[in-house]
Structure formats: structure tokens, C-alpha cells
């Protein structure tokens, strides 16, 4: 039986498509490797030659300047050549299929693809069709997964809380549409976090969310009580008014993270957000910029975690 598309026959990581199904050992290997790269990023020369002579293609079928930039910085600090392709604006408009695009890039000797697509499973499709030795990293596919975000979040938690085995972690907001939440939950459960809570209105929680091993709360105060980590999610603007929510203001009143609501959590709880934030919707400015916020360190650690993933994949040819 094949272990999954992500792991080679010897169990080594060959693509990063999802945090689901990755063994704890693999996750820890990525986090430990990221530790090394955090120190590289603090040096005078923020560059190491591991990916020298290799080409990484950022293939984004869905726009995202921020995520693409973090992958670009990570690859450049590993000395890779980076090509950014905003496909939304070019080939698909001309009718080229996803695989045609990838095959064309592969013919240009790409070694690694970072793929973002609005359809779940698109990076998996690419991974199934690339040559051996070519690696694929999922940079977000539909509502399915965003594994490097999930990994940088668990890296940040480990940095501040050291030990996963006694933590209570709450994820707040639009779980239903969030590939980030799914990647976080799988990583947290695999690494042994005993209690992962999801907090949100019924309309923004998947019907079968308990199957992921989480506790469900609809009341913010109850859900936050005693939490060590509060992870807020971005509320997509297209969901702020519509059938699922009355308004952004109503959402903020019930689920926006304010100092008063945060007071329910443990006094040394950390506050996280994957960015970009809607201040005054899912999180208040006083919390986002407050003493418990680790939102900016998340961004910094994100570079190191993406460097770790790329270096591990490149070494597992």
C-alpha cells in the first residue's frame, strides 16, 4: 500500500501537501530544522547554499502577495533561483490546463513547485504528475489545506510553550472555509495537544468537525476559558454579509477577540493570527498589538519553517 503521495517508499518527505497523515516524527523533523534557519535569519549573511543551482517556481493560480513573498524569501535565503508565476492572470485565461502549465515549467528544469489553487487537490494532481526528484509544496488549495501555515503555527506555539502535551488550544472564527484551521488541527493533534477547541457560529463550523478530534464551542467565553493559545482566523470579506452571517459587526460582537474576551483565557495565553487581519472584525487592534500577541513572530518564523520544508524536500531527492 502506498503510504501517501507525500512520503516516499522509505518514509521520507517528498512533497508537502497536507499536515494530515504526516507522522509526528516528520513534523518534529521540520520544526527542529526550522530552528536552525531561525538562527540563519539572524546572521549578518542571511543566506546558505543548500539550494544553489536549483529552481523553484511559485505557481499561484490564486493571488496572494504575502504568502508568495514568504516562499520567495525562504527560497532565496537557501540560494535557489526563484520564478514567480501569477497564472490567474496569464495561461488559464488562454485556456491552458493546470497540468499543461506544470509540464511546460518542468521542461524548463524546475526542481520545486509551490502551488496555490482555489480548487482543493490541485497540488496533489501536480505532485502525481511531476518527474521523480521534483517536489511540490502546497501553498493553499481551496478549503482543504495550507500546510506551511499550519506548521509555522505549531512552530510558534512550541517556541513559546515548549511542550505540547498539556496545552489547551482554541481556534476561533470561520472554521468552515478555513484551510488554515484544518492544517492547524491535524498538526496539533499529531503533535499530542490534548485539547483542541474550535469556537464559532454553527454556520461557520463544518457539520462533522468533531471527527477531527476537537471540542466544539459556540460561546466565546466558555470556549476561551483556560486556553493557553488562542488562534484567530481571518474572516473572508465575501463572507462578512450573506447567508452565513448577519454582518461583520455582529460577528465581532460575538466572536471578535477583545481584551475582555481574552481575559477568559489563561493569563499567559498567546494570541495568533495567520494574517492578513481584519482589525475590528475577528480581532481588536488592542489585542493584535497587545502584549500577548505573537502575530509578528509568526511571520518571522514562517520564513524559517518554509526554508526547512524546502531544504528537507530538496535533500530527499
Amino acid at each position: 500500500m502506498s503510504r501517501s503521495l507525500q512520503l516516499g517508499p522509505d518514509g521520507r518527505l517528498v512533497h508537502l501537501l497536507s499536515t494530515e497523515g504526516l507522522p509526528a516524527e516528520t513534523l518534529r523533523h521540520i520544526l527542529d530544522t526550522a530552528d536552525q534557519f531561525v538562527s540563519v535569519n539572524e546572521r549578518e549573511v542571511k543566506k546558505v547554499p543548500l539550494l544553489r543551482g536549483r529552481s523553484l517556481f511559485n505557481v499561484f493560480f490564486e493571488n496572494s502577495t504575502r504568502t508568495r513573498t514568504t516562499f520567495e524569501i525562504a527560497a532565496k535565503r537557501l540560494s535557489a533561483d526563484v520564478v514567480n508565476l501569477n497564472i490567474g492572470a496569464s495561461s488559464t485565461a488562454k485556456g491552458e490546463s493546470l497540468l499543461d502549465t506544470v509540464w511546460n515549467l518542468q521542461a524548463m528544469d524546475a526542481d520545486m513547485f509551490v502551488v496555490r489553487h482555489k480548487e482543493a487537490g490541485a497540488p496533489h494532481l501536480v505532485a502525481r504528475h511531476v518527474k521523480p526528484g521534483v517536489h511540490v509544496i502546497n501553498a493553499g488549495d481551496g478549503r482543504h489545506a495550507h500546510p506551511t501555515q499550519g506548521l509555522l503555527d505549531v512552530y510558534t506555539i512550541r517556541h513559546y510553550k515548549k511542550d505540547f502535551s498539556r496545552l489547551v488550544v482554541a481556534i476561533v472564527g470561520d472554521i468552515l472555509h478555513s484551510r488554515v484551521a484544518r492544517s492547524q488541527i491535524h498538526a496539533l493533534k499529531t503533535l499530542g495537544v490534548p485539547e483542541v477547541r474550535v469556537i464559532g457560529p454553527r454556520t461557520l463550523l463544518p457539520a462533522d468537525v468533531e471527527r477531527l478530534g476537537v471540542r466544539v464551542f459556540h460561546d466565546m467565553a466558555a470556549g476561551l476559558r483556560g486556553c493557553d493559545v488562542v488562534m484567530t482566523l481571518r474572516l473572508q470579506s465575501e463572507r462578512m454579509s450573506g447567508p452565513l452571517l448577519p454582518s461583520a459587526g455582529e460577528f465581532n460582537k460575538a466572536y471578535g477577540l477583545t481584551p475582555e474576551k481574552l481575559a477568559q483565557a489563561s493569563p499567559d495565553a498567546i494570541v495568533m493570527h495567520p494574517g492578513p487581519m481584519n482589525r475590528g472584525v475577528e480581532i481588536d487592534s488592542s489585542v493584535a498589538d497587545g502584549g500577548q500577541s505573537v502575530i509578528m513572530p509568526q511571520v518571522t518564523f514562517g520564513i524559517a519553517v518554509r526554508m526547512a520544508v524546502m531544504a528537507i524536500l530538496a535533500g530527499n531527492a
Binding site: 527542529d32 530544522t33 530552528d35 536552525q36 530538496a314 530527499n316 531527492a317
Partner: peptide, 22 residues
């Protein structure tokens, strides 16, 4: 000094778990 990031056999042995840092 940890030399992992500058080894010349990365293509052959890949990146192994390494806790040591410069």
C-alpha cells in the same frame, strides 16, 4: 560552528536532523 548548512554532500545525504547550531 555547525557545518551542516555548508556541507558539500547535501545532494547525496540530504538534511538530517540536526539540533546543533553555530
Amino acid at each position: 560552528l555547525a557545518i551542516t548548512l555548508h556541507r558539500d554532500d547535501f545532494d547525496r545525504i540530504g538534511l538530517h536532523r540536526e539540533q546543533r547550531r553555530s
